[in-house]
């Protein structure tokens, strides 16, 4: 038997094995279930809306907020500096944006807690790093940051800084989202993170 016959048999056999495997071409989780469970139970994976508000108010460039709502909802208003990855397309889009971004932190949010926590497990299952969930989602953001009022008589230093932070982030939220659509779009374009592509080709 000569080399090319041997090579043919090897390739053909592996081809048959591949044809029998449940390959789909779409992504699958690549971590061990036990590791994913520890990630899912990780207390540090949640950030409060106050923490998120601080990132917004200080325009922290090492943090990127990811809005998981539909693009229609995102275009109406969103937390300043966030990018939109609709939850139902998260599996296809997120790895291209998140992987390979060094020490950047990604905070997921949706209206409630549901989509963001699902997306968190998906991201961790796909081995993406530095993922966090904004606890309570936009409902909590509105409740805490946007509707923040100080009603007491005396304010402690800590309360004051918290209140100032909420006020600053809340004002930014209102101002940017009140801009006319054309200017808003310009703002988003400037913030847009393009998915990195590998250049390809042959010969």
């Amino acid at each position: 038997m000569n080399t090319r016959e041997k090579l043919s048999i090897i390739l053909l056999s592996i081809g048959i094995i591949l044809a029998l495997l449940p390959l789909t071409g779409s992504r699958s989780f690549t971590v061990k279930p036990q590791n994913l469970l520890s990630d899912a139970l990780d207390e540090k994976s949640w950030v409060t809306v106050d923490q998120a508000a601080r990132f917004v108010a200080t325009e922290d460039s090492s943090v990127l907020l990811i809005d998981l709502r539909s693009s229609g909802e995102f275009n109406r208003f969103n937390i300043p500096g966030s990018v939109n990855i609709p939850y139902d397309r998260f599996i296809e889009i997120a790895p291209g944006i998140i992987s390979g971004s060094g020490n950047m932190k990604f905070i997921l949010y949706s209206n409630g807690d549901y989509d963001a926590n699902n997306a968190y497990v998906i991201a961790k299952g796909l081995k993406l790093k530095n993922i966090y969930v904004m606890k309570g989602g936009l409902n909590e953001w509105f409740n805490t940051v946007m509707n923040s009022r100080f009603t007491g008589e005396r304010i402690s230093a800590r309360e004051n800084s918290l209140y100032e932070n909420r006020k600053r982030a809340g004002t930014m939220f209102t101002e940017i989202n009140s801009l006319p659509d054309s200017l808003k779009r310009k703002y988003y374009e400037a913030k847009h993170v393009a998915a990195k592509k590998l250049d390809g080709g042959c010969e």
Partner: peptide, 24 residues
């Protein structure tokens, strides 16, 4: 075909994310 077979196997074992590979 060798590259195809290799990349499919690596993808099956979770070592290569073919969705991140550039498609012309």
């Amino acid at each position: 075909i060798v590259a195809l077979v290799g990349s499919q196997l690596l993808s099956y074992f979770g070592l290569l994310d073919l969705n991140l590979v550039f498609v012309n």
